[in-house]
Each structure stands twice: as structure tokens, then as C-alpha cells.
Design a protein around this nucleic acid. Sequence first.
DNA 1: CATGAATGAGTTTTCATTCAT
DNA 2: GATGAATGAAAACTCATTCAT
Lengths: 196, 196, 196, 196
Amino acid sequence: MPRKKNPEEKKIQILEALNQCLHEKPFDKTSIKDIARVAGVNHGLLHYYFKNKEDILTQYIEYVIDHYKSLFNDWMISQQTQNIGGKKLVEDFFGFMNTRITLNKKLSKVFIEIWAIAAYNADIRTILQQAYQEWISALSEMLNTATNDPAAAWKTSAATVAFLEGMALFSIILTPDTFDFNQVLTGFQKKIIETL
Amino acid sequence: MPRKKNPEEKKIQILEALNQCLHEKPFDKTSIKDIARVAGVNHGLLHYYFKNKEDILTQYIEYVIDHYKSLFNDWMISQQTQNIGGKKLVEDFFGFMNTRITLNKKLSKVFIEIWAIAAYNADIRTILQQAYQEWISALSEMLNTATNDPAAAWKTSAATVAFLEGMALFSIILTPDTFDFNQVLTGFQKKIIETL
Amino acid sequence: MPRKKNPEEKKIQILEALNQCLHEKPFDKTSIKDIARVAGVNHGLLHYYFKNKEDILTQYIEYVIDHYKSLFNDWMISQQTQNIGGKKLVEDFFGFMNTRITLNKKLSKVFIEIWAIAAYNADIRTILQQAYQEWISALSEMLNTATNDPAAAWKTSAATVAFLEGMALFSIILTPDTFDFNQVLTGFQKKIIETL
Amino acid sequence: MPRKKNPEEKKIQILEALNQCLHEKPFDKTSIKDIARVAGVNHGLLHYYFKNKEDILTQYIEYVIDHYKSLFNDWMISQQTQNIGGKKLVEDFFGFMNTRITLNKKLSKVFIEIWAIAAYNADIRTILQQAYQEWISALSEMLNTATNDPAAAWKTSAATVAFLEGMALFSIILTPDTFDFNQVLTGFQKKIIETL
DNA sequence: CATGAATGAGTTTTCATTCAT
DNA sequence: GATGAATGAAAACTCATTCAT
């Protein structure tokens, strides 16, 4: 039996606290003490586990991206065991994305914040770049099972991911009464599938 | 010749200085003194022309949006005099958007920052909402000259604007060597025009 | 016919504006622009008519004290023409003081502020000192018409003025529901007159 | 021996520093850094122990009033053990007040400042109100041991406290060479005792 | 005289970071 | 590991004062 918590667990506790905080305030307006309060730990400890405030942010972003990569991978594995391919696979993928990622408002809000940070911070940008490339590639492969045109599949995939991110943005910025996000999302995705 | 500058000119000088600053640092890391230094005026003057720092931001965002609305309107007027309609109009519009807006990197970077601010600030969000609604409506009307199906046109328009914003994001976050923005943009737009 | 207002009038207009301001905020929280706004003049003008902010204060205090000295002198003259003396004179004097000075809440509030300024400012203190000495002497002379004991009259006068100032303080600090200022004032004054 | 000072001690250290400062400058001209310098602590620490500058002031005023209430209570207890009553008790009380309170110039100066703050600040005023009511009531009870006329005792008490505050004011504003405070004080108090 | 833009010193406040216990 | 007092840099904001027009 472990006598003390795994130090990684405490770090995760802190990163989850930052996640909570980012639902309320942007990172720059979130103080170390805010995060510590939500995490239920002493603020001095954050400097024990992390080099400085920016280090918390970097590790948080890696943590968030890893989390959603896992989600994605788990879904992929479940699909592969079912041996689905072609248009049906893409369709299922869109369904998964819509509910778990694109229209997950808490996640989208945090991601808009991450975009803005990445726009000014090359390290964060690098992390994001890799994630988007992996995501586009994964979708591209799926599309390719239906088209057998890798170059076209990649372009469609890139455009689709751009569209999804635009919709994630709109789900936060625009109001549902003037914009039925779900209808626009699924309508467009249907067209994409048709053109395969 | 006017002996004293129009006070509006000085405000614009300050807002342009903020614009410069936002190419380097996010708004939260931009101090009043930073803006004053770039504007070449005393920092106290910023408090003479603006109520507080947030007021500078709000007026800046209104200024930026107005600026691009004007660009857009000027383009619209130039098109109307040419009496163009249908697919050709939409095609020209995409050309205009791509070069002047979506792939205008300085603009896109600033807009990502504005998105993040809007995500946490309802007043800013309201300003953005109206701008996006106008933009979507304008495109929708253009599409409708080709389709005569207002509901479908609106959905396509909304999806297209989402796609453009996603591409603007990618132009900042991703690197051109892994992602040929222009090709993805034009490729997708071609498909949209085909489906009209 | 004078072509322009007497400059003294404009100064008085400014001093009256400060008086208004002091009903709302202490002098230190009253800005030059506040005073200018209430006076209905440009704030730059205050530096034309007065050396600096403290000069406005000094001249204001002199103005207030002169104003109440005039009030007092006018009353004195009206009494002398009636050839009243002794206890009746003192009684009338108290009546005058109570209504015009001690229970004049706006005046008392301003005076508490002046006391605090004088406590830290020797110049202002000198002005106040002279005013209190004149006041005590004047009352002392009145009392002496009844007692013919100058030393005793002076002491009673000094104590009475102290009492009146204490009552002015209480009229501002305490609430009428727990303290009937008028009753305490007149009750005590009656005793003083009895002991003459 | 405690390894770390009681945090209350540090607060008192800061409040005492403010007390020192108020002997030199009014509260509004006393900066947080001034107080910190006198207290011998870092200025940031003042914001650790107090919410803001006004909070320091409020706690300071409560501290001063509590301090003098304690002085008063200690004196009361020492009197009760001696079982003194009637005129002798009142006489002793005046002696105590004169030396410890009314003619304590440092205290009086600070109190004039507090009056001025209270004149514009309802919270501070409430604190002062209670203190004066307690003071008047305590004196009233003492007077009543000699008179057995509660209503008259209360009025005399209120007037006497007003007189004492007026004398405290004069001890700061007027100069001893023109005004023998002690003589006026004791002379008047003697008359009060005679009328009991 | 009158205006109001411009200056810059000074103030409160926040907060990441350090470190003794 | 954990705590919370202490530090000091930097920020927004205020405002008396100056001065060109």
C-alpha cells in the first residue's frame, strides 16, 4: 500500500484545478492562489511541483491535449474492433467529434484560450501544431478508406478540421438562438460525406 | 490648416498603437505605458481619452471591426456597380476574403486574441456576435442569388464563415510547410461553389 | 459700466464651489476639476486666480471665517442699537449662535474639516486661532456686562465656546434620535446664565 | 517561546505605525508605504494583513477606541474597589479624564482627524457614535449617584462630554500662551460639581 | 482671460516568487 | 512535503500643474 499519494496525482489535481479556473477567468487573470484554492492545496506547493506559473500552463496544455488524444484513441480502438470503414466510419467519427469535442462548451472555451496563448507563445504553438497534425492525419486516413485519393483526402480532412474548430469557436461566441450549431454541423458533414 | 488635431485622430493614434502592440503581446501583457510608448504620447493621456484600460480595448475592437466592415462594404459597392451575381459573385467574394481577411496574418492573430477576450467578456462577445451575424447574412444573400433557397443558403453561409475562421486560426497556429493554406482554402471553396 | 466681472467675484464663485464640494467630500478627495465643475468654470482658470490647490483652501477658510464674522458683527450692531445688556444680551447671543452657527449642520461639517486641516497646518491654525480668540473675547465682554469680573468672564466665555464647538461636533457625529441637541444646548446655556 | 509572532501582534505593529504617522500627517496624506516604513515592514505586507487602505483605518480607529475604553474601564474598576461615590467620584473622574484623555495632545490630534473622517464616512461615524454614547452613559451614571435625577444627569453628562471634546480641540488649535487649558477645564468642572 | 491637451510624479493594489519554520 | 509570512516588481489610475493656442 502506498504511504503517500503519487506526486503525479497531486500534479493532476493542480492541473484539474486550473481547468476549473479557466471556466471562469482567462489564464492571465487566474492567480496561483486561485488555482491552489480550487485544488485545495497551499499555494507555495505549486512552486514545488512546477517551476513557475508558465510551467503550470505548459503542462496543463499538454495534459488537456493528451486527455483528448486518449479519448480519440479509445474511440478509434472501439471502431477498429468493429471493423467499420468507409463512409460509415467517417459518419460515426463526426458523431463522436460533435458530442465529445466540438460542442463540448467547456472544452471549446478552454481551447479558445489556448489558441490565444499559442498565438504568442512558440512552445505552446508547437504542442498544438502536433496535435492538429495528428488529428488531421487520422481523419485523412479514415477518409482515404472511402476515396483512395490520399492528397484529396488530406485536403478534405484539413478543411474539415478547420471547419470543426470554427464551429467550436462559434459555439462559444454566438448564441444558440441565432445559430443552430448542431444543424449547421451535421448539415455540412453530410455534404462532405456525400462528396466522398 | 487646423491648429489642433482632431481629438478623434489622437484616439485613433492610440488605437493603432494598441494594434501594433497586439502583434507582439496579448492584451493582458500589454501595459498602458506600452501602448503610450508606441503611440508616442504620455501614458497619462490614455486616461484622458479613455475611461480605463478596458475602454481602450472595447473601442479598439469596435474600431477594428468597423475597419473591416468598411473594407467589405467598399468591395460590395464595387461589385454591385459591375452587376455581377450568382456563382461568379461568390467566387470573387472568396478571393477578396482570402487575401484581405482570412490570410491576413496580422489581422488573424489579433482576432484570435479578440476571440479569447470575448469568451470571457460578454460585452466584447456582443460586439463580435453582431459582426459575425452581419457577415454570415451578407454571404447568405450572395449565395441566395445562386440558389434561391434562403434556409440552405444561410446554413451554407454559416458553415463557410466557420470554415474561414478555422482557416484563419490555422494560418497562425500551423506552419505553412505542413499546410498549404491557400490550396485548402480555394479547394474547399471550389466545392462549395459547385454544390450551389 | 464695468466691462468685465470683478475678478473678486469669480474668486468668490470658486470659493463657494469649494464650499459646495465640502458638503460631499473632504478637501483631499475634492479635485481641482470637481471645484471647477461646480463653479462652472474651466479648471485651468483656478490656477490663474489661485497659486495652487492649497491657496484655494487657505483663501476659502479666510472667506468662511470672514463670512461668519460679518454675520456676528451684523448681529452685534443690531443689538447695540437696541441698547440691550446683561443677561438678556447673553441670552439673545446664545439664541443667535445656536440657530446660525452651532446647529447649522452644513457649517459644522465644514468646520470639522477645517479643524482637521488646522491640526496639521500651522498657517490655517493661525487663522483659526485668531477667530476663536475674537469670538471668546466678544462673548467675554458680553458676560462682563453682567458680572464685572473680567477674569471670570473670560474663563466662562472660553469654556462656553469650547462647549459650543463640542456641540457642533456632536450635531454631525451623533444622531438626533439619541441626542436632543437643542435641549442639551439650551439647558446648559440656561445654567451658565444663572451662574452669572 | 513561540517561534512565530502572533499575527495579531504584527497587525498591532502596523496600527501603531499608523498612529505614529498621524502625529505628522493626516490619513489622506499618509501613504501605505509611509506606514510600512514606520512599522519596519514591507509595504506589500500591509495588503496581506488588511484588505485595503480603508480597512487599516477602520481597524485603527476601533483599536484606538478600544484602547481608551480599556483605560477607562481599568480606572472604573480601581474606583469601584475603593467604593467612592457622589461628588468625589465625579471629581476624580474629571481628574482622570483631563490628564489621560482631554489634555493628551497626541490623542486629541488623532481624534480631530477621526472626527473629520467620520463626518464623511458613515461606518466610522457609527463606531464613534457608540463610543460617545457609552462615555456619556458612564458619566451620567456617576452623576446620578450624586443627583438621583437620571434625566438631568444625562443632559449634564452630554453637555460635559461636549465641553471636554471642545477643550480637546482647543488644546490642539489654540496656543497655551493665550489659553490656560487646565484652568478653564478645572474651573468649569468645579462649577458642574457645585451644581450637582 | 479661457480652454483643454499634455505631463509626470505619486498612490494603491496585485501577485509571482522565495524561504524559514 | 507543507505552510504562510515576507518581498519587491510592476500595473492601473489620479491629479495638480503647465502651457500653447
